[in-house]
Design a protein around this nucleic acid. Sequence first.
DNA 1: ACCTGTGAAATCGTTCACAGCA
DNA 2: TGCTGTGAACGATTTCACAGGT
Lengths: 226, 226
Amino acid sequence: MKSEKISQLTTNRLSIYLRCLKELASEGLTSVSSDSLADRFHLNSAQIRKDLAYFGEFGVRGVGYDIALLRDHIIRILGLDRSYNLAIIGAGRLGSALVDYEGLLRSSFHVKALFDVDPKKIGKKVGGITITDLKNFQSVVKKANIDVAVIAVPANAAPDVFEKIKKAGIRAVLNFAPVRLNADDEMRVRSLDVNSGLESLSYFLTERPQPGDKPKPAGKARKSAQ
Amino acid sequence: MKSEKISQLTTNRLSIYLRCLKELASEGLTSVSSDSLADRFHLNSAQIRKDLAYFGEFGVRGVGYDIALLRDHIIRILGLDRSYNLAIIGAGRLGSALVDYEGLLRSSFHVKALFDVDPKKIGKKVGGITITDLKNFQSVVKKANIDVAVIAVPANAAPDVFEKIKKAGIRAVLNFAPVRLNADDEMRVRSLDVNSGLESLSYFLTERPQPGDKPKPAGKARKSAQ
DNA sequence: ACCTGTGAAATCGTTCACAGCA
DNA sequence: TGCTGTGAACGATTTCACAGGT
C-alpha cells in the first residue's frame, strides 16, 4: 500500500471488477465476499483483495464488501466519475459504428467530434455528429476540449493521424488501426486490434505437435542433407 | 529449447514482430538484426531474441535475421499459413463493418457467415454475405466449417450467443461485447472491448495526487470522527 | 465462524552479459 | 568484429497462508 506504483494489470482488473459489481448490483445484491466474486466470475480471490488493497480498505473483515460502495470506489479510482470528450478520426464503418455504440451511451465517454478527409463525407451527419474536415483537427480539438482520440482510419493513414494527435496535445489514444504507434511517456495508446486478436486465436487453434521440436540451424543454404 | 510452455505474452509479441517484418520487407530490406529491429519499433532486442529462441534458431550469428525467412517462420508458428473461416454474430454496424474490414482482406481469415435475429435484416446482404437467422447457427456453422466466432451483439445478448458458440463446438472466439464470458480450457476467448480500453485511458488521465493516500477504514458508519 | 488485508513464498517474465559462431 | 542464443540475475506478479478484525 505505501505509495507504490500500480501496475497496469491491476487497473485493467479493476475495470473487470467494476463490470462484475455492476452486474451484481443490478441483481439487487448488496454485499459480496472476494471468494464469491471470484467463483462467480472466474477470478482469483486473493488477487481481488490484493488489487483493492493498493487503494484502500474497502471491505469489512468477516463480512465482505458492500457492492454499491465498492463499485463507487472503483469508479473514483479509475477516474470514471467525470466525463471525457472523444474525437473519432475516420468516419468509415468503424468510426460511424462507434459514434452511437451502445456501450458508450451510459458511460463517461462522449463523442464530441468526428473527422474524415473524404470531401463527400464532410458536412454529413452521423448520429447527431457532423463530420469535420481533418484539416481543422487542431482547432476543433481545442474548442471541443477533447480528452481522448480514437483512430479509426486505415493502417496507412494512421501514423500521420497519430502525429496530428500528438501535436494537438491529446494524451490518450484508442487505436483500431493495425499499426505500431510509438508513443512517448506523456501519452498512452491502447490498441484494439482485430488482427492481433485473430492471430492469437490462430496460434491457439494451431495444435502444435510439440511446442519444442523446432527446426535447427538457420543459414541460407542447408550445408547438406546429411 | 526444451518443450516449455510458451507464454501468451510471447505469442502476442510474435504477432508484432510479424507486422514489423512485413513493413521492412515492403521497403525492400532483406536482413535485420535484433538490435535494429528493436530500435526501429521501440522493442527490446534481448526479448526479441529470446522470444524467437523458443521456436528455433532463425538467425545467423554475426549477421542477423533474414527478413523474409523469419517472417515465414513466424507465419508458420502462429498458424497463419492456413485459412480460417469466421462467423460473425450480430449484423449491426460493428458486425457489418467487420465483414469487409480491409485488414481481413489480405489475411488468413475469411468471413463465411453473418448472423442476426432481426427479421428485417435476415436475407439481406452485407459485402457479399447473406445475413442468416441465428436460429440456424448450428447447422450453418457445421456446413461452412467455421473456425472462429466473432461476437458483435449487444452486451445483454452476448452470454446466450456464447452458449450457442460453445454448443456448436467452436473453440475460438473474438468478443466485442463488454461482458465477461467464462470459457473453459477447451476454448479461447479474446475480448476487444472498447469500454475496457477507454477505462484504462481514463485511469491514465486521472492524475492521482499520490497513488497512495487512500481513505482508511471501511465499515458502514464511521465510528466517530475522532 | 467468517472474511479481509498482507507479509512471505512461489511463479513468471524481462533484462543482462557473455560464450560461441560466422 | 558483429550478432545470435542463452544461462543467470533481476524484477514483477501471483498465490499462499495466516494474523487480526467483526
